Computed example of a mutant assay.
Amino acid sequence: MKTALRVIAVTTALLAPFASHAHKAWLLPSATVSTVDQWITVDAAVSNDLFYFNHVPLRLDMLAITAPDGSKVTPENAHTGKYRSVFDVQLKQNGTYKVALVNQGLFASYEENGARKRWRGTAAKFASEVPADAKKLEVSESVGRIETFVTAGKPTQDALKPSNVGIELIPVTHPNDLYAGEAAKFRFLLDGKPAANLEVVVQAGGTRYRNEQQEQQLKTDANGELSVNWPTPGMYWLETGLQDQKTSLQQAKQRRLSYVATFEVLPQ
């Protein structure tokens, strides 16, 4: 039962944007600007307060680290504890790395022999694991991304190329070139096309230590772009999401999309 509740909590955090009181999923790097051959440590968790470990860890099964040349990087010293997962990355190349947890799968519920069943998995496994004659079948698809960015030396763009699946952030302002008092511009894509009128929440970390959440409620323009102001230096969390009917499986009635990113904003 504890395992099931943990799965539900993590899934809810990935798919339910815009609720300031809800659980928040995030990746938190020890540094976002470094030099080549240095190491960073990344925490991965779901919490009630931003960047404070007090709920459950994020699982690392779907972790993908993209190097500046577009190749994949294997994390080192990965470990999952009670409240967080953690892993190390050596920055062997000059340029920008993308660290991402990518979740794409199906959720199904149905009746079998009078009992309600729940299933979660990939589209490839759906036909073999869910009965073809399942009664009261309800299926939804989810595509979620949790990302952060780290640069060794000079910022680059190759690791930031979109996959054109779900919601993705394409930086106009480089994500490791953010400073307090300077506005940054980001572009959002939905399946590779501009995501217009997308509602986005931006929030500074440290919510445990202040009474007001200080959320910025933003919306993309017709080109999928918006500007973000950073009032103070520190770590910031960005979240957005939506539902549509563009599913990859005929049986699925809806698709739930989410995107989360963590940024470091430096003093001028």
Rank of each mutant, 00 (worst) to 15 (best):
F107H: 07
F107G: 04
A124D: 11
A123D: 12
T122G: 02
R118M: 05
K117I: 08
G114D: 01
F126K: 00
A124W: 06
R118E: 10
W119D: 01
K125F: 07
D133T: 14
S128R: 10
Y110G: 06
E111D: 15
L106A: 04
V130S: 08
R116H: 11
K125P: 00
A115F: 08
E129P: 09
S109H: 11
A132M: 01
S109W: 09
A108L: 07
D133F: 11
E112K: 09
A134P: 03
K125D: 14
G121C: 04
N113A: 10
G121Q: 05
F126E: 06
D133H: 14
E112G: 07
R120Y: 05
R118T: 09
G114C: 00
R116S: 13
A134R: 12
S109G: 15
S109C: 11
G121M: 07
K117Y: 06
A108Q: 09
R120H: 15
S109N: 12
Y110A: 05
F107D: 11
N113W: 03
A108K: 08
W119M: 10
D133W: 08
E112F: 03
K117M: 15
R118S: 11
K117H: 12
K135D: 13
E111R: 14
P131L: 02
S109D: 13
T122C: 02
A124G: 06
S128W: 00
L106N: 01
R118A: 08
N113V: 00
R118V: 12
A123T: 08
F126H: 05
D133G: 09
F126N: 02
L106F: 01
A134C: 10
A132L: 11
L106Y: 01
T122W: 02
R116Q: 14
E112V: 02
A127N: 08
A134L: 09
A115L: 13
F107A: 07
R116W: 11
K136E: 15
A115T: 12
A127R: 09
K117L: 05
K125Y: 03
E111M: 15
W119K: 01
F107T: 02
E111L: 15
N113K: 13
S109E: 10
K136P: 12
G114Y: 01
D133I: 08
A124V: 10
F126I: 00
A124C: 05
R120N: 11
R120V: 12
R118K: 14
K117D: 08
D133Y: 11
K135E: 15
N113H: 07
V130C: 05
W119Q: 06
A115V: 13
K136M: 15
A127F: 08
A127V: 06
K135L: 15
Y110H: 14
F107P: 00
E111G: 14
W119S: 01
N113Q: 12
A124K: 02
A108R: 01
P131T: 04
E129M: 14
K135M: 15
L106H: 00
S128D: 12
